[in-house]
Amino acid sequence: MVSEPLASSDGEPSVVLLHATEEDLAAIEPWFDDPDTLKYLGAFTTVRAPGARRYIAWNPNRERVAFIMTTPAEAAGKVLYNQVAVGYTVTVNHRSKGYGAATVRALINHPDTQDVKIFEAGIHAGNEGSIKVVEQSGFGLSSLTYKFRR
């Protein structure tokens, strides 16, 4: 069950980050029907990525407020466990209330990620809310990726 979260000293909502269970994944699947989630994160199938670690952020009212996952980076065919890609979504009812940044910070401080040296979040340029979340969480812009699409 969910333990009581610690109060945030900076006024940010507090969350407890727990490993996502199959019950959690079933409960959040409808979140991926939201047009913004589909646009920026993709379909629910993305949460089943091989090697991903999946977490649910719970608020003090014991509500699921966010989903966040990491996948190890790869270079030259080798998995880099000290570098992860981060993807997340906040339920529509809890957006713009600080839960995104609280969830990202909880991930950075989670015992599972203490060996991780680099967290990367690939964010669509138009996703201003998500850009704000990672900037509030201490991320800095390191590069731009240009893509050609047919």
Rank of each mutant, 00 (worst) to 15 (best):
M1K: 07
M1T: 08
V2G: 00
V2W: 04
S3K: 14
S3H: 13
A7P: 01
A7I: 03
S8L: 01
S8C: 02
S9G: 08
D10N: 13
E12C: 15
P13V: 11
S14C: 12
S14W: 07
V15A: 09
L17N: 12
H19A: 10
H19P: 11
E23V: 12
L25I: 01
L25F: 13
I28T: 11
E29Q: 12
P30M: 11
W31I: 14
D33H: 09
D34A: 07
D34R: 12
P35T: 13
L38V: 07
K39V: 07
A43V: 09
F44K: 01
T45Q: 13
T46C: 14
T46G: 05
R48Q: 15
R48F: 14
P50V: 14
G51T: 10
G51E: 13
G51Q: 10
R54S: 07
R54M: 05
I56F: 08
I56G: 07
A57L: 11
A57H: 09
N59L: 12
E63F: 11
E63N: 11
R64Q: 15
V65A: 02
A66T: 03
F67E: 09
I68F: 06
I68G: 01
I68N: 07
T71C: 04
T71H: 04
P72D: 10
A73D: 05
A73W: 09
A75I: 01
G77H: 00
G77M: 01
G77R: 09
V79D: 02
V79N: 01
L80F: 06
V84H: 02
V84P: 00
A85Y: 12
V86C: 02
Y88N: 07
Y88T: 01
Y88C: 04
Y88F: 15
Y88M: 14
V90I: 06
V90S: 01
V90G: 00
T91K: 03
V92Q: 07
H94Q: 06
H94C: 00
H94D: 09
S96I: 03
S96E: 07
S96F: 04
K97V: 05
G98I: 07
G100Y: 13
A101Y: 02
A102C: 06
A106I: 09
E120Y: 08
A121L: 10
G122C: 15
G122V: 15
H124N: 14
N127P: 13
G129A: 15
S130R: 10
S130V: 09
S130Q: 11
I131C: 07
K132V: 13
V133N: 13
Q136P: 06
S137M: 10
G138N: 13
S142T: 14
S143H: 15
T145E: 13
Y146W: 15
K147S: 14
R150A: 08
R150F: 06
